Amino acid sequence: MKEQYDTISVAIEKLRKLGFTTDFNLKDNCLAHPQGKIKADDFIIVDVYRYEGNSDAEDEAAVYAIESYYGVKGILVTGYGISTEANSEEILKRLNIRG
């Protein structure tokens, strides 16, 4: 499925068309979504897209296409590099990248 998209918004739009419709957020060592929280161990990362800011390192971001083992598919957008929060790094390390 890996295709590099020009911008974060294009990546999100294309992923939504592929069925990644849930918006995930990092919360309390879980991935939170409108219907609740799911442990990081219950997900895999299907794809990751990284974006670098043109002039500001704080503009760096990553878009994750995530799928749960029981069928919930969605998107997580986080900062990376110097803009990554310590909490985010810990949770993302627990997620499995599909290989």
Rank of each mutant, 00 (worst) to 15 (best):
K2T: 09
E3D: 09
Q4D: 15
D6H: 10
D6V: 05
S9P: 07
V10D: 12
A11P: 04
I12N: 04
E13P: 00
E13S: 03
K14A: 05
L15S: 03
R16N: 09
K17Y: 02
L18I: 06
L18R: 01
L18Y: 05
G19L: 02
F20R: 15
T22E: 11
D23I: 06
D23A: 13
F24C: 01
L26I: 15
K27C: 00
K27G: 00
D28E: 12
A32R: 15
Q35L: 12
G36E: 04
K37I: 00
I38S: 14
K39I: 00
K39H: 14
A40D: 10
A40H: 04
A40W: 07
D42A: 14
F43D: 01
V46M: 03
V46L: 08
D47N: 08
E52K: 12
G53W: 06
N54R: 02
A57F: 06
A57P: 00
E58D: 10
D59N: 01
E60V: 02
E60T: 04
A62D: 03
Y64N: 01
I66P: 04
I66M: 11
E67P: 04
Y69Q: 12
Y69M: 14
Y70D: 13
G71Q: 03
G71D: 03
V72E: 10
K73W: 07
G74N: 13
L76G: 07
V77M: 10
G79F: 03
G79V: 07
Y80S: 02
Y80C: 07
I82Q: 09
S83D: 00
S83M: 05
S83K: 02
S83I: 00
S83F: 02
T84D: 10
N87I: 10
S88G: 06
E89M: 03
E90T: 11
I91Q: 08
I91T: 15
K93D: 14
K93S: 12
R94N: 14
R94H: 11
L95R: 09
I97A: 05
I97R: 12
G99K: 12
